[in-house]
Design a protein around this nucleic acid. Sequence first.
DNA 1: CCACGTTTCAAACAAATGTTTATAATATAA
DNA 2: TTATATTATAAACATTTGTTTGAAACGTGG
Lengths: 222, 222
Amino acid sequence: MAQNDTVTRILDTAEVLFAERGFAETSLRHITSKARVNLAAVNYHFGSKKSLIQAVFARYLDPFTERFHDVLDELERRYQGDVIPLEVLLDSMARTVLEVPAERNSLKVFMRLLGLAYSQAQGHLRRYIQEHYGSVFTRFSSLVRQATPDLPDAERFWRLHFVLGTVIFTLSGLDALRDIAEKDYGEHVSVRELVDRLRPVVVAAMQAPLPSAEANHFPTAS
Amino acid sequence: MAQNDTVTRILDTAEVLFAERGFAETSLRHITSKARVNLAAVNYHFGSKKSLIQAVFARYLDPFTERFHDVLDELERRYQGDVIPLEVLLDSMARTVLEVPAERNSLKVFMRLLGLAYSQAQGHLRRYIQEHYGSVFTRFSSLVRQATPDLPDAERFWRLHFVLGTVIFTLSGLDALRDIAEKDYGEHVSVRELVDRLRPVVVAAMQAPLPSAEANHFPTAS
DNA sequence: CCACGTTTCAAACAAATGTTTATAATATAA
DNA sequence: TTATATTATAAACATTTGTTTGAAACGTGG
């Protein structure tokens, strides 16, 4: 009870501060004071700051992977051998990404953390995520492969990362972008609207024509 | 001579370490020792670590903005009142982005720094970049507006950031992605090839159909 | 009630950080 | 050369960092 309360309060506070300022820029003292918890509690319950960071991710990614596996199971059952259309796959992933953190209304935090996981150095984090959650991405990739048989493997690999970049970049910087958009266009965009804007863009990106061999008159570097 | 040498060596070393590890994770001692320069030299020549970070960016962005303004001048001259096609605008920007750091063969560093500027908290950096280099982006945006008259303003705003996310995300994480791609598909991609892959995707993203009002059966959050 | 394992807490620790200072070295100009 | 400004250097400074420690408080089962 008391333990669970402390642990939860640390995680709740840590994920917000991490999302706002990054990992290195967030001190344990900042977390524990804001969480009204003793400084030593972090090392007592989590062992180290690294482990706390991983625990913050696990609290999002564990339910996500479980749920996403279920969703993919359901899709494979429903399409029974037929290829699952690309739009269905993308929508399913988006729906799962949105549903999981919605319970704590913290999608913004989740996406920001994902963005940090990619951009921050934090080698241990990338390794942790890869080891623990790489399988579900592999499964998704192979389904996307069946849905886009015309795409060369390498092309599909890069395009998946292209759209991944779009989504993570946009949603992780959502607050800043939303402020600009609101100031310039007066309208307040909800996450739902943003996803609706993203959908056709992502689909078009995946279905774009293959690069032509000509017209490559670019300077090269590295 | 000696000054310039020290200043340059600090900048050269700092940009590499910043790109590899981020700002907070890179200590001045790490920079100065690797640059074979006295620790106090940073504060002597730059004043503070913050100013060093900004100087690292300025060394890329100053030539970039100058050159990009020239390119846009040339385009407006050539098209003389006619709207500049979207592909031309995008290609021109890409060419400028590639050319500027190519002189020091450090495109990778440049893109990684751009990615960090977005993802890291570092409020001072975002402000600095916005103040010093916001105008050229505004100019580019208004040209894109003329090239895509059918897009609602808000839609164009968001799509520009979508593709910005794709490019920055991909090129800033290039090394990691390249390793995976190389391992999985055996082929080593050059930056040039990657840009050629990006081109049709970016164009398709900007020209994707507008989001349909129906088919929005998504859970909402925030 | 007591004993024992768990959790909290204040304090201290060692290490690392950005910055400053005082002095030495060096270049520059008269 | 000499006087002067500029740059380099080593050392110290004040904070801040993550982590550890040992005792206190707490809860739980016997």
